[in-house]
Amino acid sequence: MKLTLSALTAAVLITTAPWAAAQNVAIVNGKPVPTHRVDVLAKQVEASGRPVDDQVRAQLKEEVILREIFMQEAQKRGIGASKDYQDQIELARQTIMIRALFTDFQKKNPVTDAEVKAEYDKFVAANSGKEYRARHILVEKEDEAKALIADLKKGAKFEDLAKAKSKDPGSGANGGDLDWAAAASYVPEFSEAMVKLEKGQLTEAPVKSQFGWHVIRLDDVRQAELPKLEEVKPQIVQQLQGQKLNQFQQALREKAKIQ
């Protein structure tokens, strides 16, 4: 049997129609909406940490279709020719280009394991040593603090007085407990008095700081427990990436000729 030209054309259309449909999400008012748009949105969703399952992909498909509908309407109304639209497009173009520039820089200048180790070693050097677990009661006047010390020496419970009298709402509600911390975490007057105490000992006199008058009790001392490198590596990498990017930005700013 010999195919006529019209029959041959029909056969070709039947053969290629499924392929053409696969390239498009839909056809809106006669205009094809390519599947690639869904793929682009799906990549953005995945980059945010969300999995793209069939349900999410269906939602993205609907969003792409709605975008095309709204775009067609905007074009009908001539919005694309407005100055405000053109200004916004230019800002968006700059944002995308700059983001791509920074991404390219970070890909070509990755944080090395040696840099991470060096930063971790600095962290260890700055934070190693002793940690102290102390309690305090903070009041406004020295006489109040002296009265508290007298009550404690008579047998009053430190935790109860802290809850009732301390003007430090955070620790006061916990019986004055400041949890484990390095001495350097506190203001100098506080830390100097605290480190002189033995475990279980109370300050004999109130300690004055910028916050008021403190009554301090040292509950325990230990060697600082620092996280292992593997535990903090993601945070260190992020920190170093930020530093490198800031240096890159500053270098570009400094060498730019601005008149």
Rank of each mutant, 00 (worst) to 15 (best):
P18L: 13
Q210F: 06
S48I: 00
D160N: 09
E144I: 03
P188D: 14
F211K: 12
L148A: 01
F123Q: 08
D84Y: 11
G242R: 11
A118S: 13
A20R: 13
E144L: 04
E46D: 02
L152T: 02
Q210E: 15
V56H: 02
E144T: 04
I137A: 02
A164N: 12
S171W: 05
L5I: 15
A145D: 05
V187C: 06
D220K: 08
G172M: 01
F248R: 03
Y85A: 11
A193H: 06
I89H: 08
L60D: 02
D220E: 14
Q88C: 07
G172H: 03
P18M: 12
E140K: 10
Q94I: 04
R67V: 02
A125P: 10
F190E: 08
K43D: 03
R50C: 05
L218P: 10
F105H: 03
I14G: 00
K146P: 00
F190H: 07
E115R: 05
G155S: 09
E189R: 11
A42C: 06
Q55D: 13
W19F: 14
Q235S: 14
Q249G: 12
Q241E: 11
V232E: 14
G212M: 09
R253V: 00
T95G: 04
Q241R: 10
A193P: 07
S166E: 03
K122D: 14
A21D: 08
G200C: 10
L5N: 13
Q238Y: 09
R217H: 05
D104L: 03
Q88P: 01
N246M: 14
V40K: 04
T35V: 06
I79Y: 14
E230D: 15
P110L: 11
Q238R: 14
D177Y: 08
D160M: 03
G170K: 08
Y120C: 04
L13S: 06
K83Q: 15
Q23W: 12
V207P: 10
K199T: 15
A74Q: 09
V221K: 13
A47K: 05
K61P: 02
E115P: 05
H214N: 09
E115K: 04
K76I: 11
G78F: 05
G80D: 11
L252R: 03
A182V: 11
V116D: 07
E73N: 07
I149K: 06
